[in-house]
Design a protein around this nucleic acid. Structure first.
Lengths: 332, 332
DNA sequence: TTGAAAGCGCTAACAA
DNA sequence: TTGTTAGCGCTTTCAA
């Protein structure tokens, strides 16, 4: 910047004014400074600028995802990035891999880099430690599920309503024996989806006590095993509602192994690539991770600007029931 | 930091020394400073630190991907992130969406934030403008394909050998009529894959002039259309080699529509989720985007440390032929 | 409309 | 082993 000032024959401050497009500089001087800057290929240093600036903003936010490589996280990331870019904000994204130690380490690394805000898909564990960030004026927004031990806004799928719609569809087709296969029940999302399932049954006057319900399924293989046992058992259901991506894939494997994929109806929570190309295409309650990301950034920016801390709003992003052939199978 | 110094009763510089774990501070003082820092929950400001530091490193690199949401990009991102984290480096990732205007804008945004290096999956267009970054001492590494107009290292799949292996496998099964469906031929990767195809045929003494070859396929629908025309035509091949992800999916659709998926062999370049769950499972030449990402970061860090500019090495990351049922179909 | 001086939080270079 | 002074590149505050 000094060089630019020298070349344009003005003071440092004037160059600063021109670079930041402040008013009150004569057009002639502006042109001269712009020329000099272009000639020297001058790039302002945002870090230095933010150091002195009164608002101290770095124009960078941190994003903690479960794993940037997984489909849901990647789509959420794309949403955050899209909304951020429109506002000239850059995104530092990292993967927690579900490890809360790692989560803390990453938060620290982001904190050292003075991010203006944090979007976090919380790991199992407690997020109370983030209070320190809030205290420093760095707002936090949770995505996918609310964090624990911290009062901060969250942006999540409407799990309850989504699951309910899916199960209602099966009921409409005439199914009365609808198995539920769910994930780790300590996770809030799993609870809500289960809630949607029971609510739909209750509304239809179908006792959930008669249903096959297995929760706390932790892997795709476990899901395949559980589904297999259910299909081979005495009370084989006419339909299955699976509350999570990985579980759905396990169920697909189990159904196919037994050649039952065209007999037993299946609706899964959360869409996945090529679900439509499987045989039969798998019906799902699709989330909108991209919208979650966009919305989260928006909420974060609002919090940054109004510096309203600790407002615990929960924003529900709607889901969409996508009917594919597996969801059109009627009970025999 | 001033507060910490005051609380510990030492000078600023001593606190700095302790924070940076420099040698030559008495253990007693170290303890005192650490205590004070913990008590005040002091977080050093990396930006301020880097401003004064002689090497001027921000500990942040930029990553430009086609789209953080697509499978290949996301896996490469995970690789970069993994390797970066081990070195305490943060990653600013953005999506170019294949738009070279956008690419330039993103580079600028990263440049303002003083990233220490840049990993770029180049858009169609020219990357000569990145010479300015190199001139500033910011190294550039290309991934997925080499950039144009700039002498910089690249880390890419071994497209030639990968395609060759895939086609060789079909030849081994006895196929002599193997159609080639390829992407935009201006792209370097597409050229190399086509080269692998012709090389395999040539080595087996099969004239490529007799083969059905369609290049410049730009979308999944176009691929389905082209594949359909080929399958319905007079010279129906006994096998298809598709040179790209999207094209493979189009071919799958076309085959299935005609009920030919168990008669015509198919091998695609680039793996995709659930390829094994399709019927039949689709054989592929799998890339290793994660390894590409890890390697790219490693090369970048080397360049950052040795400040060796303009060395144009091309690192080839091996591919793996994954045989699934579609790749075991013999000619009738 | 423009500029001079001070200082953001930190580290380099030197001195004690 | 510890501290002092200057200054990184920029913006603020105040004066001209």
């Amino acid at each position: 910047m000094r060089d630019v000032a020298a070349l344009a024959g003005v003071s440092l401050k004037t160059v600063s004014r021109v670079i930041n497009r402040e008013s009150g500089v004569s057009p002639e001087v502006v042109a001269r400074v712009d020329d000099a800057a272009a000639q020297l290929d001058y790039r302002p240093d945002m870090n230095a600028s933010n150091l002195r600036r009164s608002d101290g903003r770095t124009g960078t936010v941190g994003l903690l995802l479960e794993d940037v490589a997984n489909e849901f996280s990647a789509a959420a990331h794309a949403g955050v990035e899209y909304a951020a870019r429109q506002r000239g904000i850059a995104v530092l994204a990292s993967s927690t891999l579900g490890d809360s130690e790692r989560e803390r380490g990453l938060v620290r690394a982001l904190s050292l880099r003075r991010v203006d805000g944090l979007i976090v898909a919380p790991c199992p564990g407690d997020q109370g430690y983030l209070a320190a960030e809030l205290a420093q004026g760095v707002p936090v927004v949770f995505i996918d599920r609310p964090g624990r031990g911290l009062s901060a806004p969250s942006v999540v799928s409407d799990n309850m309503v989504g699951a309910r719609r899916g199960v209602e569809h099966l009921l409409t087709l005439g199914h009365r024996s609808i198995a539920f296969l769910g994930g780790i029940s300590a996770v809030a999302t799993a609870q809500e989806r289960f809630g949607g399932y029971t609510a739909a049954l209750a509304a239809a006057g179908v006792p959930s006590a008669d249903q096959t319900i297995v929760r706390d399924i932790g892997s795709i293989d476990m899901a395949a095993g559980v589904a297999g046992a259910i299909l081979d058992g005495p009370d084989r259901p006419t339909a299955i509602f699976s509350a999570q991506n990985q579980i759905t894939m396990g169920v697909v494997r189990a159904l196919r192994k037994r050649g039952l994929q065209h007999q037993i109806a299946l609706i899964g929570f959360d869409d996945f690539t090529l679900a439509d190309l499987l045989d039969p295409g798998v019906a799902v309650v699709a989330q909108d991770p991209r919208a979650i990301g966009e919305r989260a950034l928006q909420v974060l920016v609002d919090a940054m600007e109004e510096s309203v801390d600790g407002a615990t709003s929960e924003i529900l992003v709607p889901t969409t029931l996508i009917i594919r052939p597996s969801g059109e199978i009627r009970p025999e």
